[in-house]
Computed example of a mutant assay.
Amino acid sequence: MNEILVRPLGADEAAAQVAQLADVLLDCVEGGASVSFMLPLAREEALAFWRGVADSVARGERTLIVAEDAHGIAGTVQLITDMPDNQPHRADVAKLLVRRRARGSGIGRRLMEAVEQSAHDQGRHLLVLDTASATAARLYERLGWQRVGVVPDYALLPAGGLCATTFYYKQLA
């Protein structure tokens, strides 16, 4: 069995890993994941996105967590903590991405457990996320996330065509 290491990346390491992070994003979008990007997704656009994430990590606005296997970064998730003044107790979970080659190995679950622990450690006790993926929805529900509702025609799939998005929340102990 391949060993998986799940850990947060600091700002310098996030900046140094933008190429691998871009590879994960490109793989997911090419596989049909509705994660804000359309096909064809240019590598430079993916790199620019991850540079922005690394800058946000450096400003203390988010936590970036990765899962690494023998081939490098296999998955990632973000905890966005840059909230309005009246919401210091909550955070958004964003961009749970797992490379197609690594799906079904428990990486998504481990990333979600790590992001929840990071939120708890940062004093955040209400988390919110959304997904267009039925597979991710099943994972979230197994992990105790509460479905708020579904908004039809919320976003476009990478190749075009509207898709619904399901919103979730979780209160941490």
Rank of each mutant, 00 (worst) to 15 (best):
M1R: 06
L5P: 00
L5G: 00
A11P: 11
A14F: 04
A14S: 14
A15Y: 03
Q17S: 15
Q17N: 14
A22G: 12
V24I: 13
V24L: 08
L26K: 10
D27Q: 10
C28H: 02
C28M: 04
V29C: 09
V29I: 12
G31L: 01
S36A: 15
F37L: 07
F37Q: 10
M38F: 01
L39S: 12
P40K: 11
P40G: 08
E45H: 12
L47S: 11
F49P: 02
W50T: 04
R51H: 14
R51A: 13
G52P: 09
A54Q: 03
D55M: 10
A58T: 03
R59V: 02
G60Y: 02
R62K: 15
G72M: 09
I73C: 10
A74K: 05
G75T: 11
V77G: 06
Q87Y: 14
P88C: 02
R90M: 10
A94W: 12
A94G: 12
L96R: 08
L97A: 14
R99D: 07
R100G: 15
R103A: 06
S105A: 15
S105N: 06
G108F: 11
R110G: 06
R110H: 08
M112H: 05
E113Q: 15
E113P: 00
A114V: 04
Q117A: 14
S118H: 06
G123A: 06
H125Y: 13
L129R: 08
L129S: 10
S133E: 02
A134E: 13
A134Y: 00
R138N: 03
R138K: 11
L143K: 09
V148H: 01
P152C: 09
D153Q: 10
D153K: 01
A155W: 04
P158E: 07
P158R: 09
A159M: 01
G161R: 02
L162K: 09
Y169R: 09
L172V: 07
